[in-house]
Write a protein that binds this DNA or RNA. Structure first.
Lengths: 236, 236
DNA sequence: CGTCAGGTTGACGCGTCTCAAAGTGGGTGG
DNA sequence: CCACCCACTTTGAGACGCGTCAACCTGACG
């Protein structure tokens, strides 16, 4: 069974954009929205395409419309840590330093809004409501990062995988995903690099969770058979 | 040898506050500063005192003036992850959820400014310059968190300790610390919980770094004998 | 000089990584 | 439509880094 995150209808204009309700621009009125549109470009990109790379000049901000981005940092010797996945509605590029602090590439096909940093900053500059909205998103991002640190520093492999699955389910639910099946558009290697494990450990742990009747492994996703037990493993 | 972070002269008024140049309030003019003062209280607290606790009502924001706070999250079974140390000039409480997402307590004696969340928010509400300043601090915080994730997920014990020492040196330098000796006001257990290690591993790693001539262990701190080698270990 | 918290050291075990091989499914071209 | 291919995943066996448990050391303080 193939599971897709691209089932939502395509947008035509900003006002009926699929992520209108929860993206950055939710804090804008019609007039402002019309102005912001003139600063944005819609970009489609193919599976695996790099959106931007760590340490290159940060010329843009991004708002994801469809699909999933993986955000990651690389060590000089090639070790990779995925610091998060960006979903529809997520705003990317907040850090504010002149270079990107991490890389981003598409998992599957992705559509996003791109803003030039300079003109976006000029637009935001004197709009307290919009600035507060950006603050809100930054705060949420920060809270997620802190939770992720606990996971990386203090949880076992099994707890990590369970936390990931529960967290992923909750994030998809937030953006309106429903259904028995939990799609996992990213591969095992991505999950491993997100959790600070190796691909083999992730694979073994998935198998163990399935043996224990907690999940069912499908191609491109899983089914959470025993959500309560998974939540217990992810240990608040 | 005893090393202190409290050598700086005490403030009298906001305008000659020791952290005036790099705290949140650096974005304010004299008049605004005078207004903000009326919303703040100066608090002194003793070594080990808890400033706020995870999952309690988030009624305040904090700006550190002197000393160091440890910020941490606890798992139900008692495992602890320190997500950061707050130094003079740092602003704490950004996340914006109704409850605190983590706990904070004093390492050594601490002095900070406390703001009621509600009145602080009202003050900030229509001050774009101030909101942008808060954004800037949030972005820096986020960048640090991302770097920390790489450390927790992808570095060995030795790399973790070296990164910590180099990072700590740089943060102290940013707030004006100079001198051969790097003070470490936190104990080994704090360092372990910051790095996702046990206290024994941290202790052993310190010893190894000293044997290798990279550091010298002092009471209450270290001396970085071979900064280049430490930086190489922390592997950018 | 005794006490106590914090730090260090050692021996051992376990969880995760490493290296290697085999299995699986989707896509492509004959 | 089938057979091959390739990337991805799973499984296994063995090694190793870090955790665990326990003992000892050290310096600050009364």
């Amino acid at each position: 069974m193939k599971v897709s995150l691209l089932e939502s209808p395509r947008w035509q204009t900003c006002s009926d954009c699929a992520v209108r309700g929860f993206a950055v621009c939710s804090a804008l009125d019609k007039a402002e929205l019309r102005e912001l549109v003139t600063l944005s470009r819609h970009i489609h990109c193919d599976p695996g395409a790099t959106v931007f790379a760590q340490a290159t000049m940060a010329t843009s901000f991004f708002s994801v419309l469809e699909g999933v981005l993986r955000l990651y940092k690389l060590l000089p010797d090639g070790r990779r840590q995925i610091i998060g996945f960006a979903l529809p509605g997520d705003f990317v590029g907040l850090a504010g330093s002149p270079q990107y602090e991490f890389s981003a590439d598409a998992i599957g096909a992705v559509v996003f809004c791109q803003f030039s940093r300079a003109s976006f900053a000029r637009f935001a500059e004197n709009r307290p409501r919009f600035l507060r909205r950006i603050n809100e998103l930054a705060g949420r991002e920060l809270t997620r990062a802190q939770e992720h640190m606990v996971l990386l520093g203090r949880r076992s492999a099994e707890e990590k995988v369970a936390s990931f699955l529960v967290g992923w389910r909750d994030r998809l639910a937030e953006i309106g995903h429903v259904g028995e099946v939990l799609p996992l558009p990213m591969g095992r290697l991505d999950i491993a690099d997100y959790l600070g494990l190796t691909i083999e450990t992730v694979s073994r742990t998935f198998t163990k969770l399935e043996r224990d009747g907690i999940i069912r492994i499908l191609t491109g996703g899983i089914s959470l058979l025993d959500a309560a037990r998974a939540e217990a493993l992810s240990a608040a």
